[in-house]
Design a protein around this nucleic acid. Structure first.
Lengths: 279, 279
DNA sequence: TTAATATTGTACGATATGTTCCGGAAATCT
DNA sequence: AGATTTCCGGAACATATCGTACAATATTAA
């Protein structure tokens, strides 16, 4: 099949199609690629036509059978989620013949970011932003071994934007005191990625007991702390070599900070003005 | 709970699952959601188990049947706001959709990363990696207001990989003591981005006086501390709205950590083994 | 208008798919 | 170690799914 992808292939074949087949094509393009992954009857109903027409449509595209098309769609979907989509990166650094280490690294990272963005439902992201922008509750942020840096970074920004932002200490003992400040309805932001921290799970349980609303940043395998969380934001962090890369996670954090700043702008702008900070 | 999506739902059910069922769960999470849309035989093969187990796994999740799960996966896939990538070459579709905030954000970020990779000479990056992988000198890491998180993150990783990694405190007073540990030839890593920190400039001067070799991570406008630095790594951080985004900077940090881990592998692997850490 | 052609939908048979059952294997308990 | 329970996968069974023949309908040409 075409390297250019199935969507464009459909466009190219459009002229050869009969009117009912065109309805099928439009239906597929409109809800790409989901209806193509559904059974033929569903596809047909959605397209306002009969199963037979779908069959012929698929044949027109050059696929051997409907299941064959489905395979292709799945492959493409997978490719889209895990392949390096920032092809430009390689070209962008034309500084040397030997490939820049950064290029390879960034290419994978780009794929991770695409995958993360594709996987995080807009509704989850927005809900999280809304929670953080709600000035009537306190905010408690904490992370594990490596993700503590995320917590720190987020705290540093949100402190400027809104009041009542606290970071919980990584050490359990200290955290016990801080737990007393958590009141029902408060919002807790947790970071937990692979090699999930047992202490953090414990913390999550306690937060849950104190009726905090939890937002969890985690990886594609999902931290066990998710069972306590109202909102789960999964980022793709796996890399081919050495360490996992949390840059995608970090990027989502920054996006969230930006979004919260927008949502809480009336307050945020006053606070920033007060310390003479210009964005 | 269910709002969090099928992925987290899977993880919540994880404890109830038997080992073969867990393999199924992991396989699905790893190639989410594609294998779930494939026939059971394919799923089973990919998960290294039998169709029967997949069936039971699906039942454990609370779905009425495998097709039922597929419906759910398709619905979830559709529910996501279409990302510009998914839109692909599809013409005529209005680009004015309520776009996923993350998509817009990430697009800019992608440009920043590209620009960063293009601007950082391979030689600089390699030299920096070599310096950090040199085990005969100590490492001192420090950052400014926001970039302290970078320092923290880098320290957390490098500590595992090599000995003699120290982080300098943000507070000048404390830092004064720590400065005494810096010996000629030691390597110092500094982070300084826009709204350059005067204290950090001062620190750089002192480090220079103590004949430390400095690696500076900064932004496209270059921190004044650069005059003391042996190696300068400029990242593009400007964004159109609200805050600058340090994700590109963070990404370079991760790349460097990975590279250093490779270069210092003989030592790193021993250290990681010693604490039973597998990458 | 009529006839020829192209297109579409329905019905049915062939096939592929998912689920259940059962024997054996593994883990757990006594 | 032996007994009991749990767990797993192969094979049979039931069923859903797809492709196609054929009839009905729309379209075009004469």
């Amino acid at each position: 099949m075409d390297v250019a992808g199935i969507e464009s292939h459909i466009h190219q074949s459009m002229s050869r199609l009969t009117s009912a087949e065109k309805r099928a094509a439009r239906a597929l393009l409109a809800n790409y690629p989901t209806i193509g992954l559904a059974p033929v009857v569903v596809f047909a109903r959605e397209a306002g036509t009969s199963p037979a027409t779908i069959s012929r449509f698929v044949a027109q595209l050059g696929f051997k059978s409907y299941p064959d098309l489905q395979r292709a769609l799945r492959d493409e979907l997978e490719e889209r989620v895990k392949s390096p989509l920032q092809r430009g990166l390689a070209k962008a650094s034309s500084t040397s013949d030997a490939e820049h280490y950064l290029d390879g690294f960034f290419r994978q990272l780009g794929a991770n970011m695409e995958a993360s963005a594709a996987r995080i439902p807009a509704s989850e992201f927005e809900s999280a932003a809304a929670l953080l922008a709600n000035l009537r509750t306190s905010l408690h942020i904490t992370g594990g071994r490596f993700t503590e840096a995320m917590a720190l970074y987020m705290e540093a920004h949100l402190r400027l934007v809104r009041p009542d932002v606290r970071r919980m200490d990584a050490r359990a003992a200290v955290r016990a005191d801080q737990m007393l400040d958590v009141r029902p309805g408060d919002v807790a932001i947790l970071f937990d990625v692979r090699r999930y921290d047992p202490q953090l799970l414990e913390t999550a349980a306690q937060l849950s007991a104190r009726r905090a609303v939890m937002v969890l940043f985690t990886d594609e395998w999902i931290s066990p702390a998710s069972k306590y969380a109202r909102i789960v934001i999964p980022c793709r962090i796996a890399m081919e070599r050495t360490w996992d890369a949390n840059a995608a996670l970090f990027a989502v954090v920054e996006a969230l900070i930006a979004r919260v700043t927008e949502l809480a702008w009336p307050t945020a702008s006053k606070r920033l003005d007060a310390i003479d900070w210009r964005l």
